[in-house]
Every structure is written in C-alpha cells, then in structure tokens.
Design a protein around this nucleic acid. Structure first.
Lengths: 140, 140
DNA sequence: CTATACCCTATTAATAAAATAGGTATATTA
DNA sequence: TAATATACCTATTTTATTAATAGGGTATAG
C-alpha cells in the first residue's frame, strides 16, 4: 500500500479543520472524536503539518488549530510528501540500484512516478472541500 | 512503497526469459545468477506466473521456462496484479471503510487508482523489451 | 488555575516483505 | 535402470514497517 495512515489522516485532519474553523480554533480532541482517530496518534500527525506550515497551533484555553494558508494553496502532493516522505512507487527510485543503467523496467517506474505526482499535483485542499473530486478530477 | 519485490522481480524474470529463450528453456538458476536474485525466492515468484500462464515450465534435464504468450500479450498491469494482488494505493479501496459514503478524500484515491491502472495498462512486455519505456511511455 | 498545544521516549501489536529450508515429482541421459 | 537435473510444493523464519498505545512531561494563553 502506497499511502499509509500518516498521509490519509493528514488529509482528513486538514479537511476537518477547514470545515470547522469558522467556530474558532479547533481542538485536536474534537477532530479525534469526529474522525474516529486516537488523539495521541493525531498528535504525531499534526506535528508535521505545523512544521510545514499547513496548520497553526495556539496554546492555552480556547486554543487549537487553524489553517495557515488558504485551501487553494495546500497542494495535495506536497501535503502527502510532508506526511509520508517520497511517494515513489518502487524503492529503486529512492535508494537507487546498481542495475539502474541497464534495467529494462526502470523507465516504467519513472513514468509511473511522474504520472502519480502529476495527478496529485492537480489537487488542492480546496478541491477536497468542494467535493470536486467526485468526478475523479479537480474542477480547476 | 507500492510495488514490492514480487512485482518487480516478476517483470525482470519475464524480461530475462524473453531475452534468452531463443537458446531453449531457461533454467531458474541462470535467471537467478543474471538478475542477482536468490533462486529460492524466484521459485516463489515464478509459481504465480506459471499459474497465470505467462510462463510454461518443463521439468527434468534440459527443462526450464519459456513464455507462454507473445510479449505483446503480456499486459504489465495484469502481470503486476497477479504478482502483487490489487494495486490500490490506499487500503480503503480494498477493504472498504465505514466512512466511505461521506469521505471527502475517497474520490481522490479512486482517481489515483484509475490513473495508475491506466498508465500500467499502456505497457506490455514487448514495450519493456524494446526499451520503449525509455521515453516513459510505450510507443504504441 | 485550567485547558490546551507541544515535546519526548519507549513499548507493543499487527502486518507485510523477504528470504530460507527441505522435501517431492518428472523428464532426460548414460 | 540408475543417475541427474530440473521444476514444483509446503512450511518456517527473519526482518522491516506500520500503526498505534502508554505515560510522562513543559509552555502558554485565558
């Protein structure tokens, strides 16, 4: 499986915050409840999103999280790479391989990698919020 | 990582047999040596390819493997699915999820799954043999 | 004072990937 | 017919990764 819970939960977390932040800062506890994910595990996941400046956290009473950027500026490929690391479909593309020079399958994997990156690059958080993805493609 | 050694070695095995079968049946031992993969592990991998009728095995002295089909008739997506099982990029698409009805990210994954399948569907073993993949796309 | 984010380390549980070990069946050759 | 080489089969082990849990703590804002 290519996308683990780290990436999937990251997107659900961002969507949840985006959908609820009109009410003020969103507590992780509430996201955990709504999404059915343990608060402790979300803590691990939210850290990266704060570091990469997709979310801003505010401490203390009344604190919580809100988006640091407009949903249009949250590129889905970049969010997933922040959460998951490289999205390469085969290890060869990450670690290299002594046979790369003459490997007959390498171009296949390079092309696949590009196709995946291009697809995900076509989405932003705004697309997910609008349900634009229902067609399988962003509305642009 | 989406594609494991099962899928990657399967393709390299098919390419190796295709490139050498003019000399008669190809012994697994020779593939193992050329490809730098243990013979025992290749045994596991070759089994599926025989079952799915991509390769034919002949026992006894002088035996080995040859392609059961023309390279043009070996679809890369189908080979990989035989070796790996479903290529779905997220578990949700395989096992389902109680939130599928209203999940804002599901369409993203469905689209990704389709993009991957369509890309791989565009390749056959013949493309890999011709090095057509060097452009990242089959020559058609 | 309290509620929240934020930080740290460790442990476990579950699953999957990768490989190994040892045996059986069958075809060819001497 | 015996020896050999090969495919074929079943099971186990090892290693790595994912996914989560547990439990502590510190900083800060209301």
């Amino acid at each position: 499986m290519m996308i683990s819970t780290k990436g999937r939960y990251s997107l659900r977390l961002l969507v949840d915050v985006a959908e609820n932040q009109r009410e003020g800062y969103i507590r992780l506890r509430d996201v955990a409840r709504r999404q059915g994910i343990s608060e402790k595990y979300l803590e691990i996941i939210v850290r990266t999103l704060v570091q990469e400046d997709y979310l801003t956290g505010v401490r203390g009473k009344g604190g919580g999280y809100r988006l640091s950027r407009d949903p249009e500026d949250c590129n889905i490929r970049q969010v997933l790479e922040a959460a998951e690391g490289p999205l390469a479909p085969v290890v060869c593309l990450e670690n290299g391989c002594p046979r790369m020079e003459r490997c007959p399958t390498l171009p296949l994997w390079q092309g696949l990698d590009q196709v995946i990156a291009a697809y995900l690059d076509g989405f932003t958080l705004a697309d997910l919020l609008q349900g634009a993805g229902e067609t399988g493609a962003p509305m642009g």
